[in-house]
Computed example of a mutant assay.
Amino acid sequence: MEKYPGYLRKPFYYETDKMGIIHHSNYIRWFEEARVDALTFMDYPFEKIEAEGIMIPVLVVSCNYKQMVRFGDEVLIKPIVTKYTGTRLDFDYAVYHDEKLVTTGSSQHCFMSYETNRLIQLRKTHPKLHELFLAYYETTNKDN
């Protein structure tokens, strides 16, 4: 699998606070945008996952701010899968501005059925998606 290059994002003015700095709450949204973009890159967009009856709720999310990002700055967000079990999926995020690490974060997820609201094991229920997440995990952890 080709390595995902990351999600390029230019902040919008409405995402800033009174000081012109990106408000802290927006980074969590950016993490989600990067995850969704990575799925599209893998040719398995989120819409397809939902159409197959799978939901991927967020269980835990955290963010560490190292340097301010301002309106007009362009950032690159790199989501890295740190754990994949078939029922769980954990990410770390690195946010860069001008190649400098400005923010890090993480999120933990599970796979559930829309129909039953129960945890599912992708290996059994959706083997193609399982193999795709395994390949993504291996690709994102090669150089990390």
Rank of each mutant, 00 (worst) to 15 (best):
M42N: 13
M42S: 07
M42R: 10
D43C: 04
Y44E: 04
P45H: 09
P45V: 06
P45M: 03
P45F: 03
P45I: 02
F46V: 01
E47D: 07
K48P: 03
I49S: 10
I49N: 07
E50W: 09
A51M: 11
A51R: 13
A51E: 13
E52M: 14
G53D: 03
G53F: 11
I54Y: 01
M55T: 08
P57V: 01
P57F: 08
L59N: 01
V60S: 10
V61P: 00
S62I: 03
N64M: 08
N64A: 06
Y65F: 08
Y65N: 00
K66G: 10
M68P: 14
M68F: 00
V69G: 00
R70A: 12
F71Q: 00
F71N: 02
D73W: 05
D73F: 03
D73H: 01
V75N: 02
I77A: 01
P79H: 05
P79S: 13
P79I: 14
P79W: 08
I80G: 00
I80M: 08
V81I: 15
T82V: 02
T82N: 09
T82G: 11
K83N: 11
Y84I: 05
T85K: 04
G86W: 06
G86P: 04
T87E: 04
R88V: 11
F91Y: 13
D92Q: 04
D92N: 09
D92S: 04
D92K: 12
Y93K: 02
A94W: 06
H97N: 15
D98K: 07
D98N: 06
K100N: 09
L101W: 01
L101F: 03
V102S: 04
T104N: 12
T104R: 07
T104I: 07
G105M: 03
G105E: 05
S106A: 10
S106P: 12
S107F: 09
S107H: 03
S107M: 12
Q108G: 12
Q108N: 15
Q108E: 13
Q108K: 12
Q108H: 14
H109D: 04
H109I: 05
C110Y: 06
C110P: 12
F111E: 11
M112A: 05
S113A: 12
S113D: 14
S113R: 07
S113W: 11
Y114R: 15
Y114V: 14
Y114T: 11
Y114C: 14
E115W: 14
E115V: 10
N117V: 06
N117I: 01
L119V: 13
I120H: 05
I120N: 13
Q121W: 14
R123C: 10
R123W: 11
R123F: 15
K124C: 01
K124E: 07
T125E: 06
T125S: 05
